[in-house]
Design a binder for these strands. Structure first.
Lengths: 112, 112
DNA sequence: ACTATATTTCGAAACATGTCGAATAATAGT
DNA sequence: ACTATTATTCGACATGTTTCGAAATATAGT
């Protein structure tokens, strides 16, 4: 079976990694915060808000900065979010397309 | 935000557990097999097929029966699948509604 | 009762994860 | 250069997960 025929399709391994990234309550909260504040492909901080996404995403989580950094890196390695340095800060946003792909997986679509 | 806080934490917890259940490649394969063979709410084995779902779900996974049993229990504890004994076998099927709920989560719909 | 098949429970070993604090790097503004 | 802010890396420790094999349980058919 050529289950990799379509490039955009998430195979078993990549899917499992995405779910693993979301399996930690703190990481899931970070992801949800990004879902709330960022439309896919758009950087979280607008022009007038110069705060860093990384720092902001720790609000209400009660974890050390090193732990926050680690979680965000995990989300990035799993392909769920993107990050880019912007001065002192590092902006984060949800990978464009990943929400659609994961949503379709649970619909049982043969072409996620 | 005060009563939402508790509600969100519970939702967050339950969601994280669902994703954790799907974070293991073998468990994900089991779940996908159930997605393929079972429509939600319908027992996998039809009248003429008297095979057990639990035993069948181990096909092609190369894991010990005890490991398979453990994984299926995890999927059940996470609320992703249902199981019921039927004679010697234990039938498994996907929890009706869970696919819709998870699909909607990634669409950002405000839905329990 | 005995046997065969299907599934679960238990104990254990190897490995992975979440978390922290301390140290380090990157950048901006004095 | 110095300092402040932000974010990352590192080492460490406690806890959790994956997996197995052996033993136990459940059920059906003889």
């Amino acid at each position: 079976m050529s289950n990799n025929s379509i490039k955009n399709r998430l195979d078993n391994q990549r899917l499992a990694e995405a779910f693993k990234a979301l399996s930690n309550p703190n990481r899931l909260k970070i992801f949800q915060q990004l879902m709330d504040c960022c439309t896919p492909g758009t950087v979280c901080s607008t022009e007038e808000v110069t705060k860093s996404c990384v720092g902001d995403l720790g609000n209400g989580l009660d974890i050390a900065p090193s732990t926050l950094s680690h979680h965000i890196k995990e989300l990035s390695r799993a392909g769920l979010i993107r990050m880019e340095r912007r001065g002192q800060h590092v902006d984060c946003w949800i990978d464009p397309g990943i929400l659609e792909q994961l949503s379709r997986f649970f619909k049982g679509d043969p072409n996620p």
